Amino acid sequence: MTFVLTLVIAGLSVGSIYALIAITLNLTFWTTKTVNFGQGAVLMLSTMGTAFLAQSGVPWLAGLLGISLSAMAMILAERISVRPALRISGSMGWAVSTLGFGICIQGIVSKYLGAQAVAFPDVVLSATTFVNVFGLRIGAQYLVILAFSITTIIALDLLLKRTVWGSVVRAVAQDRELASVFGIPVARVVTISFALSGALAGIAGILTAQIIGTVDPAFGFSLLISGFVAGVIGGFGSNWGALVGGLLIGVIEQLVGGFVSAAAGHGLSLALLMIVLAFRPHGLLGRPELVKL
């Protein structure tokens, strides 16, 4: 029983990381109706940058610089990979261009920072810090990740529903052209959403790297896939759906991985994705999109 509880708690923490990544994809999906497949590389850029900047002896400052770096990378991705593709009506070129942007970042990092895994410093909490939960010694980092993900979702939900900026984002999400006619600076709103998405992706990468202990140029790809799966299962565009989807596949992967194998856990999460899409194509908490004819 103790082993199962440990796996469940670890699954909730890992799943909250998936949820956080799904939320970063939602931020850009709302304003551009695109999915940034270069998000994994942006996440990796933050962690690799933090790992190397931390050699100066100030890990928390390195973390802030790493997060800023990922935010700037996302702004660049929007300018050169998404915006040009959206000028062509009905184009899916953004899928290829964002993926190419991510591959380019990964190649640059591999060339100048090395392709080998490097140790990641203790930016938030030490790996030796534990907390007693129901008589179990759980790493404090797991609980910090879970608390941060839930807090982020609540904050974004309030931001979208209770602030002027949230109303602007919802207006852009519903009709970009009409929002522009009413004087809303659509390009600026999109840029801010990409910057915020990059910053949150950077934070997700740092929190994940704290648990793993090492980071390399391929670090973000598997996280991107898991975050995307969490978003689709929960309902793309829904933050609460992202949380449900992330926690669900996180717990499944940890339980199956603990009793069978990690590969079986990943396979089962993908099987769950296919089942959900078969019966609820818009996800567990997502809503079908209405198209005006």
Rank of each mutant, 00 (worst) to 15 (best):
F3V: 05
A10H: 12
A10D: 13
A10C: 08
L12I: 10
S13A: 15
V14F: 13
V14R: 14
G15A: 05
I17T: 15
I17S: 15
Y18W: 03
A19N: 09
L20W: 10
I23E: 07
T24Y: 15
L25A: 02
N26C: 03
L27Q: 02
T32Q: 02
T34F: 01
F37V: 00
F37P: 00
L45P: 12
L45M: 14
T50H: 09
F52W: 12
L53E: 13
L53K: 09
V58H: 10
V58G: 04
W60H: 03
W60M: 08
L61T: 09
L64N: 07
G66W: 05
S68M: 14
A71M: 05
M72Q: 07
M74A: 04
I75N: 02
I75W: 03
L76E: 02
V82G: 00
A85P: 03
R87T: 03
G90S: 04
A95I: 13
G100Y: 00
I103P: 05
I105N: 07
G107L: 13
K111H: 15
A115G: 10
A115P: 06
A117L: 07
V118I: 12
A119N: 08
D122Q: 10
V124W: 09
S126D: 12
A127S: 08
T129M: 09
N132I: 03
N132T: 05
A140L: 10
Q141F: 07
Y142H: 15
L143A: 10
V144L: 14
L146C: 06
L146H: 07
A147I: 09
A147S: 07
A155E: 13
D157L: 04
L160Y: 07
T163W: 11
G166Q: 06
V168A: 13
V168W: 09
A171S: 01
V172L: 01
I184N: 10
P185M: 01
A187W: 05
R188K: 12
V189K: 13
F194L: 08
A195Q: 04
A204M: 06
G205R: 05
T208Q: 02
A209Y: 11
A209P: 11
G213H: 11
F219K: 13
G220N: 00
L223G: 10
F228S: 03
F228Y: 12
G231F: 02
G234V: 10
G235Q: 01
G237E: 01
A242S: 08
L255D: 11
V256K: 14
G258Y: 01
F259H: 14
A264Q: 05
I275Q: 06
H282E: 06
L285K: 11
R287Q: 14
R287E: 14
L290N: 11
V291E: 14
K292C: 11
L293D: 07
